[in-house]
């Protein structure tokens, strides 16, 4: 096709192709899982089945992106879950008020950006390790969510719930839009700075990359994505819940790790992370529909995460041996 033709001469596309390196195995695994899923539930191929499936995947994909963004930059966030909750309660309390749905959306986005940027400033300027700052931050953010809305409730307009979580593939469309935005961001000097700062902060600084600004940007964007997940989840359930985000912290890390994003920064790709989240989402769905008991689900999930990390490591070890 067109792209394949261009890639032979265009640096941008050949760089893009190179980034698929090492991901082919993951693509195949994801493809097989999707195939199995489609065979088990042919409904997936219809509009409504597809919409439902992508709606389940959408929040996981976004938090995984949010986490991968930080991990690529050499950080990590243990406050993803509480921030999702915060987004949900802000959406549920503002949309019925004088601000209206649009104002509510802006309030959610602004709070996500603000919280993320604040964490970023603390990490970058005060030189505190991200894992601890976000651990402490998770208490603060969770507390704020509890104060705004002590128990599940609030209001989300029906039309919004129907739009985002109804029978149309809006969520999938939004995901595609987000991926395009990420591609554009990565084609800016600031976006590539995320990789450079994650892999070699001193070198990046010497090359003229504004290291602190890159770090704060990464945390702010990650916060924005996370808070928007809260809005989506609130629309899905039709109300706000101050603890609804809790499982997302671990799942976001699991998705990113499944997708091959490394812990030490600069290693991995966003496309890998998205695939990782898709794999995780399909697995959870399949196990649920096959009637696996929660016990086996837990055990299987743990095993799969372990295998995803251990197998590439072991194979590279073996191939290195003479």
């Amino acid at each position: 096709m067109n792209i394949a033709f261009l890639s032979r001469q265009n640096l941008f596309f050949s760089v893009q192709r190179r980034r698929n390196r090492g991901l082919n195995g993951l693509y195949i695994v994801v493809g097989l899982f999707l195939l199995a899923y489609a065979m088990l539930f042919p409904g997936l191929l219809g509009i409504s089945g597809f919409s439902k499936f992508t709606q389940n995947w959408f929040p996981l994909a976004l938090v995984t992106m949010a986490q991968a963004l930080l991990m690529l930059n050499g950080g990590i966030s243990l406050a993803i879950g509480p921030l999702v909750s915060l987004g949900a309660v802000i959406a549920a309390t503002t949309m019925g008020g004088p601000l209206g749905p649009i104002g509510g959306l802006l309030a959610v986005a602004a709070s996500g950006l603000l919280v993320g940027a604040l964490i970023g400033v603390i990490v970058a300027q005060l030189r505190l390790p991200a894992i601890i700052v976000t651990l402490a931050g998770s208490f603060i953010i969770g507390g704020i969510a509890l104060i705004i809305l002590p128990r599940p409730g609030g209001f989300i307009p029906d039309w919004l719930s129907n739009l985002l979580a109804g029978n149309g593939p809006v969520a999938f469309g939004l995901l595609v839009l987000l991926l395009v935005c990420w591609k554009l961001f990565l084609a800016t000097p600031l976006g590539l700075g995320i990789y450079a700062v994650g892999d070699n902060p001193v070198g990046a600084f010497r090359s003229g990359v504004p290291v602190d600004r890159v770090r704060v940007t990464a945390f702010a964007l990650s916060g924005l994505l996370t808070a928007l997940v809260g809005l989506f989840v609130a629309a899905q359930t039709g109300s706000g819940d101050p603890v609804i985000g809790t499982p997302f912290t671990l799942n976001s890390i699991a998705g990113a790790v499944l997708g091959g994003v490394g812990f030490l920064g600069g290693k991995g790709t966003m496309r890998g992370a998205i695939c990782g989240s898709l794999l995780l989402s399909v697995m959870i769905n399949v196990m649920f529909f096959l009637g696996f008991s929660p016990v086996t689900q837990y055990v299987a999930q743990g095993l799969i995460i372990l295998a995803a990390v251990a197998i590439p490591e072991l194979t590279s070890q073996w191939s290195r041996k003479p």
Partner: peptide, 30 residues
């Protein structure tokens, strides 16, 4: 002596890092 390179980025992106030619705010890959 200590290199200032990023392992995951390509040769071209490393060479341009911090001084990218831009077009409309994006890196001008051409």
């Amino acid at each position: 002596q200590e290199l200032s390179l990023t392992a995951e980025l390509s040769i071209a992106e490393n060479i341009g890092l911090g001084a990218f030619p831009r077009r409309f705010g994006l890196i001008d890959y051409a």
